[in-house]
Structures are given as structure tokens and as C-alpha cells.
Amino acid sequence: MTAIIDTDPGIDDAIAILYALRQPDLGIAAMTTVAGNIGLSVTTANALRLAALAGAPTPVHPGAAAPLGREPRPETGIHGNDGLGGVVLADPDRSAEAESAVDCLARRLTEAPENSVDLFCLAPLTNIANLLTSAPAAAARIRRVIAMGGAVEEPGNMGRAEFNLAHDPEAAAIVLHAGLDLTLIPLDATRQFRADAAYLDRLRACGTLAASTCADLIDAYFVQTAHQAKGAESRPLHDPCVPLFARHPELFRIETRNLQVDHDGALVPGPHPIRVAMGVEADALRARLAEGLGG
């Protein structure tokens, strides 16, 4: 497998990236960044820091600095001005690539055998929409897209919609209506995947920098909810569901729903059959995440 991560780190993005970069079978070839949880310069710097922490020489390619025709709406209330909830990571050991995100995606898709590259989308879908419109022949070579986003039966977390789709509804519509081999992991699944204080202890006992850093990142989620009382759970661990689904699809309940993206980024009934994760086996997923970070 070869995969490219499209991301806007972001606390839960950071956990997903550290997990994915430690799984050789995922074959993470590059990361592309986009403005979303925080501005592009910060998401790019965070992606570089995470690659360095993981000891992975993964190139990082900056992408879209704003949604298609809209103003950015960063989520600093959850992720902080640094995007990582105040968790300090060492400075990166390399710079971002000069090649843009879309050019990187088009080149790698064209150079690789057809249907051999997966896209792991953890962010607003602006970069992927730009790829579809500017390099459709390259985009047609994508093997599959696994994207965190949307809310089917659950209420949204940004008005009627979920953040990634609501941040750039036009991009979301382009991607979700394109007929790609796409699996969407919405809030219906991710809200079932959380951590408690005992799980943070479990991660710190793993003895790896990746696991202890993820414990700190999840702890920052507790800080944002103002307490870490005994038995309390963190905010949902949204983005780690993407690489976890790539490795453990049996732990997700997948349904096909006929949907479309409306002008607010909400998923509503429509003509496009889309595979969506409507549930997870949360205990097993937590175990697989800890194993992947600590192994």
C-alpha cells in the first residue's frame, strides 16, 4: 500500500499522523497540508514537527490557504493558536517542499501504478477538490479515499454540519459527488471513539515518544473540556479513525447511504451512494491505537 495524508494538524490529526507514520504497511509517502483547524503556515509546521518526532523522512507539501471562495474559519477554541493544544514539539529537521500539494498529488498519482495510491483525508477537502478540477486524469488513478467528515444521523459540530465539510462545502461537494472509491467516517462513528484518564496512563506506559506525545495531546482535549474527572472521556478522537480503518476495517460498521453535500456542508439525502461508517468497536480500536503507537 502507498498512501498520502492530507491534513490540517490539529490535535486529533497529530494523533492520526503519529499512528500512521509508525505503520510501515500503510506506506505513507507524503503529507499535504491545508488551512482548516488553524492557518496553513501552522498546519505545515506541525506536520513537519510530527514527521520529525516519528523519525520519518516524510515530505510535506503545503496546499490551499483558504476554502474555495470562502474565508477560513479556524477552530482555535479547541486546538489552540498552535493547533496542538499547547503541546510543544521539537522544531522540524527539514523544511516544507517547494512543490505544492496539488502538484505533489498529481505527480505521485501519475508516476505510481494506477489504483495503487490511497488518500487519507483528515481535513477540509480543498486540496482534493483542486486536484479533481485541475488534474482529473491523475485523480482518476486514485485507488481509494478514506476521509473523516460529515454527520449523517448525528447533529453537526459546526451548525448543521461537521467541521471538515462545513469549512469548505464547495470542495466537499466536488469530492463526495465525484464517484470516487470513497469511505467517509462521520461523527456518527467518531463520537463513539474517546479516551479516559486510564487510557492516557496506558499510552504513557507504552514507553515510546509517539505514545506519550499522544497521551499529552489527548490530555489537551480534556483541558478544553475543563475537567478530567474520574470516568470522564475526552473529545472524540476523530482523525485517528482514518488510518485505523485502513488497517482494521472489520472494526467499523459500514453502510451505503444516498447523500449529497448542501450549501452549508451538511450531508442530506441525495443521488450519490456514499459508504459511511455508522459505528465502531471502540474498545478494540483503542487497543489497536495503543499497539500501533507503542509497538
Results as ranks from 00 to 15, higher is better:
residue 61 H to T: 08
residue 123 A to I: 03
residue 154 E to D: 09
residue 135 A to S: 15
residue 28 I to V: 15
residue 66 A to Y: 05
residue 158 M to F: 08
residue 92 P to N: 11
residue 109 L to F: 06
residue 135 A to K: 05
residue 50 L to N: 05
residue 57 P to W: 11
residue 130 N to R: 14
residue 259 L to F: 06
residue 135 A to R: 12
residue 149 G to S: 03
residue 169 P to N: 04
residue 172 A to Y: 04
residue 70 R to Y: 12
residue 182 L to N: 01
residue 24 P to R: 12
residue 113 P to R: 11
residue 148 M to T: 08
residue 204 R to E: 14
residue 119 L to P: 07
residue 75 E to D: 15
residue 209 L to D: 15
residue 199 Y to K: 02
residue 87 V to P: 11
residue 102 V to W: 09
residue 236 P to K: 13
residue 230 K to C: 06
residue 137 A to V: 02
residue 137 A to Q: 14
residue 110 T to S: 14
residue 122 L to F: 09
residue 134 S to H: 14
residue 208 T to G: 06
residue 67 P to C: 13
residue 285 L to C: 10
residue 276 V to Y: 03
residue 295 G to H: 10
residue 192 Q to Y: 00
residue 17 I to L: 11
residue 292 G to H: 12
residue 119 L to D: 07
residue 210 A to T: 12
residue 79 H to G: 05
residue 92 P to Q: 05
residue 8 D to C: 15
residue 206 C to T: 09
residue 174 I to Q: 01
residue 63 G to M: 05
residue 143 R to V: 00
residue 243 P to S: 12
residue 151 A to F: 02
residue 104 C to L: 06
residue 288 R to T: 11
residue 4 I to M: 09
residue 290 A to T: 08
residue 144 R to S: 12
residue 42 V to F: 01
residue 111 E to G: 09
residue 229 A to W: 08
residue 205 A to D: 13
residue 21 L to R: 03
residue 263 H to R: 15
residue 206 C to V: 04
residue 90 A to V: 02
residue 215 A to F: 08
residue 288 R to L: 00
residue 213 T to P: 12
residue 186 P to S: 01
residue 52 A to G: 10
residue 31 M to V: 02
residue 101 A to L: 05
residue 60 V to H: 09
residue 185 I to L: 13
residue 286 R to W: 06
residue 103 D to N: 12
residue 190 T to H: 03
residue 198 A to E: 15
residue 75 E to Y: 07
residue 239 D to F: 04
residue 161 A to N: 00
residue 25 D to S: 15
residue 223 V to T: 14
residue 170 E to A: 15
residue 234 S to A: 12
residue 84 L to K: 11
residue 68 L to G: 03
residue 61 H to W: 06
residue 145 V to W: 01
residue 262 D to F: 14
residue 18 L to S: 07
residue 47 A to I: 03
residue 166 A to P: 07
residue 243 P to K: 12
residue 292 G to L: 05
residue 162 E to C: 06
residue 269 P to R: 10
residue 265 G to W: 06
residue 132 L to W: 05
residue 207 G to A: 05
residue 158 M to Q: 07
residue 222 F to D: 09
residue 133 T to F: 03
residue 146 I to Q: 02
residue 11 I to N: 09
residue 37 N to R: 09
residue 257 R to K: 12
residue 180 L to Q: 12
residue 142 I to G: 01
residue 171 A to V: 03
residue 209 L to H: 11
residue 152 V to W: 12
residue 48 L to E: 07
residue 111 E to W: 08
residue 294 G to C: 15
residue 66 A to C: 09
residue 173 A to Y: 05
residue 230 K to T: 15
residue 21 L to H: 05
residue 237 L to M: 13
residue 106 A to D: 10
residue 132 L to Q: 08
residue 168 D to C: 02
residue 116 S to F: 08
residue 209 L to F: 01
residue 81 N to H: 13
residue 293 L to D: 08
residue 13 D to F: 10
residue 78 I to Q: 11
residue 86 G to V: 07
residue 114 E to G: 00
residue 89 L to W: 04
residue 34 V to H: 02
residue 198 A to N: 14
residue 251 L to S: 04
residue 91 D to W: 06
residue 48 L to W: 11
residue 205 A to T: 04
residue 229 A to T: 10
residue 210 A to V: 06
residue 283 D to R: 13
residue 206 C to A: 13
residue 84 L to T: 13
residue 185 I to W: 01
residue 143 R to H: 13
residue 97 E to T: 11
residue 167 H to F: 14
residue 49 R to T: 07
residue 12 D to W: 10
residue 123 A to S: 15
residue 148 M to E: 08
residue 37 N to K: 02
residue 210 A to P: 04
residue 117 V to G: 10
